[in-house]
Design a protein around this nucleic acid. Structure first.
Lengths: 334, 334
DNA sequence: GATTTAGAGCGAAACGTTTCGCGACAGACG
DNA sequence: CGTCTGTCGCGAAACGTTTCGCTCTAAATC
């Protein structure tokens, strides 16, 4: 491998000059050409480890997500990666498989790789590790949910408003018994979405039947299970709101198994699962998160922070969700 | 940040000894304890860039894939990442969005990051860049398809056999007009799968009607389009075989739009799209690739190569596909 | 024509490791 | 007691950059 020394020798210039050129400094036109020729000739490319050693920047950002097999998440990551790459950063992607132990391990792993920044979709969030990172001036941007007790930049969506909208739509269509399939209490998005659901009832001067509110894990298994429970109860709902990607999948699976027709037997609103929503017959009315925008916002925020700009710290961006109109809601009024 | 020097100072030992300890060498029990105490005390962790500079190994592998939003692919990557991480490697994941220009760019980007190994699911494959990498003794493992004119390790599946099996199943069920929705000629997997389809016809002493064989891009758009064409033709097929993840999605979407019932109006076999297959009603009979196994095989092969073992080079692993039995094929015999 | 100023290049010292060859020492052996 | 052998630690030289402060030259200014 050619080094900067070889380029210096070949051009008759000094190391310092080559380095200056490489870092965008001004050199004489004549020398510029000589340097470029030598670089091509030798096939030189800068050794990022040597550079990193000197500058103590790795030009690498860590991305820690719960799941790499979830299109909803990877779509965000893909965006993120592209923007960061354009700025010269590479992206170290890790998933922790929804497991807090792995989450902690991989966070430690990333921290040990001397990353210049971190984007994380937290489960527990490991506030202590994150704080340590922040003390080292490694900026952190959270996705999807904040971490309790940690001051940090974050990119979220308006969960409460989205859930309010979905429930309101069902109520307005005349539904009075709306099943709610949600994540565990204590999880930020789960709490927010439930609150939105409840608030919509209040806005219609109604009180939701607590029996209709079912909470489990944010996974397909739970979605399936809770749907079965809800629908086999004494007084089943006429509509169902599944409040995350996996649970929507599980819920639809359960309805298929039970032979329930949408929307004749049951009106349904899903969350996030765009591919399922569009392939479903009829198309599933769904709350979608603005994946592209989440990725972009997070990337740009992180880049700003890595450039040292702390103007609006801590910034918490709350993005609007997108409504995918389908045909899975039956109007009971008509 | 504490350095090895600080540890040396604190313990009264020399740099060389600390380094030896860090790299698993033997030191006196007494010193070992002192070193460990000092490390904890100082919060020392090795600077990977300095280490990399000396050893000229980055302990990083590149992963280049066509698409990060495709669960079929990311599932492989997730596996890969986990195994590599256990061996101490981090994973630089890039996607090229099915675009040969980006493919080339990102490959160049990865190559410039001094990766220790590369796993790639190629489109064009950029044989020249890959060869350059190989000359630098950076092992490369290809996924899904080989690259024309390049000697290289690869992990593939038995495409021909899988397509043969699917077509054979339909033929055995009495179907004589089987639509084939495939990728473009020249793409390895597309060619192999088509050959399997044709071979199955031959095995039944039949010749496939060329009108039933439609080729497009490996995307949902094409799958949709070709399905519409096939079904609106004069003499439509009684069965359909969609031969990749996205095309299966597109095909199902088209059938829904056309109001076609599966399997009453049309028998269908899909490919790869497990989530669609299981959520579909009825469950879609589908050819699945062994994602976990592909990831593992590729990771282990790459690790072996990075350890310098070239015993079986070039190794081309051909894995068996998995048959997901569904209820989307109607038996015409009965 | 003398003095200032800006531009360009240079030398050398870091950055935090690994590694090679050597020396010190202790115990085993004849 | 002298020699040999094996273990453990040490000093110093790299690895390929960046960067600071300096010098040199030529143009600009008075």
């Amino acid at each position: 491998m050619a080094t900067i020394k070889d380029v210096a020798r070949k051009t008759g210039l000094s190391l310092a000059t080559i380095s200056k050129y490489l870092n965008g400094g001004h050199v004489l036109e004549e020398n510029r050409q000589a340097i470029e020729a030598a670089i091509n000739n030798l096939g030189y490319s800068v050794n990022r480890m040597a550079r990193g050693l000197k500058t103590s920047r790795s030009m690498t950002v860590g991305v820690l997500i719960p799941d790499l097999e979830n299109a909803f998440i990877t779509s965000i990551v893909s965006n993120l990666e592209n923007i960061l790459l354009q700025a010269g950063y590479s992206t170290l992607i890790c998933d922790y498989k929804h497991n807090p132990v792995i989450e902690h391990e991989k966070l430690a792993f990333l921290a040990a790789r001397s990353i210049d920044g971190l984007v994380m979709m937290p489960l527990n969030g490991c506030p202590d590790d994150l704080r340590t990172l922040q003390m080292r001036h490694v900026p952190v941007v959270l996705l999807d949910r904040p971490v309790r007790g940690l001051t940090c930049d974050a990119v979220l969506v308006k969960n409460r408003q989205a859930a309010f909208g979905a429930a309101d739509l069902l109520l307005t269509a005349g539904h009075r018994r709306i099943g709610f399939i949600g994540g565990p209490t204590g999880i930020y998005t789960a709490d927010e979405r439930l609150e939105g659901y409840l608030a919509a009832h209040q806005a219609h001067d109604l009180t939701a039947d607590r029996q209709l509110i079912r909470q489990g894990q944010y996974d397909a298994e739970s979605g399936y299970q809770l749907t079965v429970e809800l629908l086999s109860a004494a007084d089943p709902p006429t509509a169902l709101f599944a409040t995350n990607n996996e649970m929507t999948f599980g819920a639809v699976l359960a309805m298929h198994t039970l032979g329930i027709h949408i929307p004749e037997d049951l009106s349904v609103i899903g969350f996030d699962n765009q591919m399922l929503a569009t392939v479903h017959q009829p198309v599933l009315s769904t709350v979608l998160q603005p994946l592209r925008q989440i990725g972009e916002t997070a990337a740009e925020l992180l880049l700003r922070r890595m450039r040292g700009c702390l103007d609006d710290y801590p910034a918490v961006h709350q993005l609007d969700t997108i409504w995918l109109p389908g045909a899975s809601v039956k109007n009971l009024q008509s």
